[in-house]
């Protein structure tokens, strides 16, 4: 991509605890840049899903600061949050498809929420169904789809609106290796179109399939930076003065 990289997400010493339990994320600081492909790895229970929840604005941190698209989203009034959420696509670990809606309607949901007219969404949704290999299951309800098919619907729903950032939580967890590669190719294609992609996975093999990706590793709620992907934390954290 020829467009200059922009910092679209910035975490600054973010901590997250549920209730009075110990922190599931501690002193997490990083930046994400536009048009980059990031993997978030870590063992089960490392805090990947919690970090993603903060990213897709389903959770507020217990401490620290988060800026997205140039705005502090922690102090942002909640009525402004939907506009930010619309700039993201999310693939949930448990798919979160609407049970009583067809595959077509599930995929069309982000467009409808954004006010796209029915006449304008039919073609892109049909294209997307075809692209994920589910054109013949357009009218099927999630309960009648296999795990892999549900995952593909969830991915199609996440990318249909051409989000600026795609956040995927174990997106290949329920598909066979061949489909996993296909889905990664979809993410790469979106990435080439300018979408920042963040894929949380514990599958080490997957990391090698996207050569230009950057890796963020979470361990016991602490973030490490094995590929130098994180141009953050701020200098004061590393003892070199503030840069924010």
């Amino acid at each position: 991509m020829s467009a200059p990289e922009q910092e679209i997400v910035q975490f600054d010493n973010v901590g997250l605890r549920y209730g009075t339990e110990r922190e599931v994320l501690s002193n997490v600081s990083f930046s994400l840049f536009s048009s980059r492909f990031y993997f978030l790895t870590g063992a089960s229970g490392a805090g990947k899903t919690s970090l993603l929840k903060l990213l897709y604005l389903a959770q507020r941190p217990s401490r620290g600061a988060i800026r997205m698209f140039g705005r502090d989203v922690i102090t942002l009034p909640r009525d402004k949050l939907p506009a930010y959420r619309r700039r993201m696509g999310v693939v949930f670990q448990d798919f979160r498809l609407v049970d009583h809606l067809s595959a077509f309607d599930n995929i069309a949901l982000p467009l409808r929420v954004s006010g796209v007219r029915e006449a304008d969404l039919r073609e892109p949704v049909s294209d997307m169904l075809e692209w994920v290999g589910l054109a013949h299951r357009a009218e099927a309800r999630p309960a009648t789809l296999s795990g892999g098919e549900q995952q593909r619907v969830a991915i199609a729903r996440a990318v249909i609106g051409r989000p600026e950032i795609l956040i995927a939580d174990e997106p290949t967890g329920n598909v066979d290796p061949e489909m996993a590669v296909k889905l990664l190719r979809l993410f790469e294609a979106l990435n080439r179109l300018g979408t920042t992609v963040v894929v949380a996975t514990h599958d080490i093999q997957l990391l090698r399939k996207v050569p230009d990706s950057m890796i963020m590793r979470l361990s016991k709620g602490m973030l490490s930076d094995p590929t130098g992907a994180l141009k953050y934390p701020p200098r004061r954290e590393s003892g070199a003065g503030g840069n924010t």
Partner: peptide, 19 residues
């Protein structure tokens, strides 16, 4: 597998009514 569908910026970033 084909390239991803080109849907352009179909999504209006504003708060259009969903009704």
């Amino acid at each position: 597998m084909k390239r991803p569908p080109t849907i352009g910026r179909a999504v209006d970033r504003g708060l259009a009514p969903f009704r």
